[in-house]
Amino acid sequence: MVTEAMTVKETTIEIKAPKKPIWQQMKKMKLLYVMLLLPAVMLFIFNYLPMYGVLIAFKNFSPGLGIWGSPWNNFEHFTRLFEDFMFIRALKNTLIISLLKIVIAFPAPIIFALLLNEIRNQKFLKVTQSISYLPHFMSWIILSAMIIEVFSPQRGIVNFIITAFHGNPINFLSSKVFFIPVLIITDIWKEIGYGAIIYLASIASVDPSQYEAAEMDGAGRFKKMIHITLPSIMPMVIILFILRLGGVLNAGFDQILNLYNPLVYEVADIIDTYVYRSGLEQFQFDYATAVGLFKNIIGIIFILGANAIIRRKSEHGIW
């Protein structure tokens, strides 16, 4: 925290200091621009050059005519989106699932990292970490079969417990009430360990003398966690949070596709699954591109908004 404060002070001083002409500053930092050159050129070649491809979203694309040659279509793909009430429903579901995931599943790895940090037994710590990261590598095709088993009303362990307590078995994956909780829990279960890595890395860079000083002041375990560890990873939390908001219209395609069924379409059908099911992805590049563009624009709006709000309160925006 001490270092943090110092940095902040320095920058404010710099801003207040009489401004050197920009070119002079640029000259001083020219080596930094040289460093930037290579990544920037690569980015330009591999990301900016092909960007004309977004034009497909505004055209009736025909592979034979190419992207430039295909005829314009008057935003037809976009009007089509909003005339389709199924799409509107999918948009709503996407937002609900995604926001719930952001609120519940996003903090999970943070808490996980903080708690793991409290374990002193190095061996135990290492083994737990290594295990927690395993499910990230299992694909949803494989996991879904297991999840369906675990929640099966006839054979599943969950319902076995429910019936043992004289409850009625619940068909979780066909229930409009329980489907989304299952989505969120399984999402946490799969990604918590992998997601915690970046936070563990941030915690590793905390200066241990801070803990020692706090201990001297008589701070307990919990106090140290709240007042030292948590603030030290806060910049990382904020940046990841903003970037996560950029993907607000990605609610977990693979997961839902492998778990849902028509009985829960009403709550679980998201944009990606709907577009996929429509066979549109298969055949209609132009429409799929339009949907992708729409998703990204919404994502950018979320990022801009979050960044603006966070900038007002703290130093840690993206720019």
Partner: peptide, 17 residues
């Protein structure tokens, strides 16, 4: 920074790539 960020959100899709 914005030059970099834009590339994160817009891509031309697989054909031009």
């Amino acid at each position: 920074t914005i030059f970099f960020l834009i590339a994160m959100f817009f891509s031309g899709g697989i054909i031009p790539d």
